[in-house]
């Protein structure tokens, strides 16, 4: 079993999830509440990674991060390194790739919120930001948890984007799924099987935990 690759995958998934929560929750709030007419354009952009082949997404991310692109040039000037084939580049690709997995469940739970609860809070003199923190976030917690878990699990299993943006550098960009592919290519079925089994069990465990937690989160609501 390639522990280094598994550890890298977990690290990538955790970092991606953290960034996605910071970016995705405000974005989901905007999507759920905005009345702008062109909102659907942004909705389509967010959902794009769901239908786009990962290699296509990876190709454009690779172009966008290259040292000749504005982003890549800025990164080079700030850090002295390049984004492609680095962990940071991998992280950017993963965030884009898993964006809909965070935004969609979170936006759905925001949209399902009773608007009058928010208005009641405003009328009690509580600011918009505090209302978001004290009413919106606690009530949307199941949706946010679902978004975080899905993003984590999705990043853990990604292959195409990683291959295009990160390549296959052990300890830096060789994630578990790449490692499995390599092991199969090298006809090392035993190692591939062990890593696969680990990923399977881990993913299953995470989902079981999610569903049991969600049930508990909804406990204040009687089931009848």
């Amino acid at each position: 079993m390639d522990w280094q690759a598994i550890f890298l995958s977990l690290k990538l998934a955790a970092a991606t999830t953290a960034i996605l929560l910071a970016l995705g929750v405000p974005l989901a709030w905007w999507l759920a509440t905005s009345t702008r007419r062109w909102k659907f354009v942004l909705e389509a952009v967010v959902a794009l990674p769901l239908v786009l082949p990962p290699t296509v997404l990876g190709f454009y991310v690779l172009l966008a991060l290259g040292p000749r692109s504005p982003i890549g040039a800025l990164y080079l000037r700030l850090t002295g390194g390049t984004l492609p084939f680095s962990f940071a580049g991998l992280l950017i690709g993963s965030v884009l790739y898993s964006l809909p997995f965070t935004v969609q469940p979170v936006a759905a739970s925001f949209a399902a919120l009773d608007r009058r609860l928010i208005e009641a809070s405003w009328c009690l003199g509580v600011s918009r930001a505090a209302t978001f923190r004290r009413v919106v976030l606690p009530l949307a917690r199941p949706g946010i948890a679902t978004g975080a878990i899905l993003s984590f699990a999705h990043t853990l299993g990604e292959f195409g984007v990683v291959l295009m943006v990160g390549g296959n550098i052990p300890g830096i960009t060789r994630t578990a799924s790449i490692s499995i592919y390599d092991q199969v290519q090298a006809l090392d079925y035993a190692s591939a099987g062990a890593t696969s089994l680990f990923l399977l069990l881990f993913s299953f465990l995470v989902l079981v935990l999610t569903y049991s937690l969600q049930r508990r989160a909804w406990a204040p609501w009687p089931t009848n």
């Binding site: 009773d114 009058r116 609860l117 208005e119 009641a120 009413v135 204040p220 609501w221």
Partner: peptide, 9 residues
């Protein structure tokens, strides 16, 4: 509010 809008959490 008509249905009181109490915070359920």
């Amino acid at each position: 509010f008509q249905d009181y809008a109490l915070f359920p959490h």
